[in-house]
Amino acid sequence: MTFQPVKFYQTGTFTVGNRLLPAETRSVQANMRRTNSLNSGHRACQGCGEALGARYAIDAAMHATENRLIAANATGCLEVFSTPYPETSWQIPWIHSLFGNAAAVATGIAAALKVKGRSDVRVIAQGGDGGTTDIGFACLSGMFERNDDVLYICYDNEAYMNTGVQRSSATPPAARTATTTLGNSFNQGKNLPWIAMAHGIPYVATATIAELRDLEAKVERAMHVRGARYLHIFVSCPLGWGHPADQSIRIARLAKETGLFPVFEAEHGEVTSVSKIRKKLPVTDYLKPQRRFAHLFSPEVRTDLIARIQEGADRNVRKFGLIEN
């Protein structure tokens, strides 16, 4: 019988760091000298999931590229709260142009670097769900189609938060926004990771701010691939979704644990790995704490709508095999 050492580290890799783990397996965020790419003093709301997700992702990308990184930013919360003139929170080379052209700007930067022979410097484009799934979609699709050497990161908080919570094509069914006061309708939706995969690009992944290790591993993986890559990060929005500021991570965790937001990786259009649900929960656990879904529970419980949302979650579980057999 071969010797199998007992490896058990109290919290394993669930927590950000773990003093019991060997140093080389610790997360970037646990490092005392992490880049803090998005620094203190930014004007994001209390408990902002996007600010957190952006620092997680860009710090990991900085780590993976040994700090040779340029980022292009679409208009949106992330741009507005981080760079009110003349201040900036970014501690990396960073450019903002228009709402819809982040992918195109990044493509241009990548092309210029290629001409200059600087293959060591890597390019990231980033934006919210509005700048990605709606306004910047054409430029993004073009970037995918040409397989430009850019990692595009979408921080998905499921509406236009910066301008006052208007519906986007990423807003989930039944969610109340300023423009869907009775709750968003059950449309076809616009699954961008799936669309990215349809382009057959080398790497597509989804992540949430509730699973840091998984998120960092995906950024690391993406930075070691050339060509167009897409990372879709689920970031909660306390103000727009109507949950307490300290619940941002819990809400993101519930999105994954209910099956509403599948966390997976795909290469060349093929799903290669999924992050399994640790303990399957009903969608109501996710919906109830958020005021944008309050109309599902009062004045009467809309079992019909909740059932449709549950169906969607169950479909994800089946489609991606989210539960360990």
Partner: peptide
């Protein structure tokens, strides 16, 4: 060692870096 690591360290910091990591404002 395994058994000791099952301890939840209730109410006393065990330096898991969670607070350091999850703060959106560094």
């Amino acid at each position: 060692l395994f058994e000791a690591r099952r301890c939840l360290s209730c109410g006393n910091c065990f330096e898991c870096d969670n607070c350091y990591g999850v703060c959106p404002d560094n």
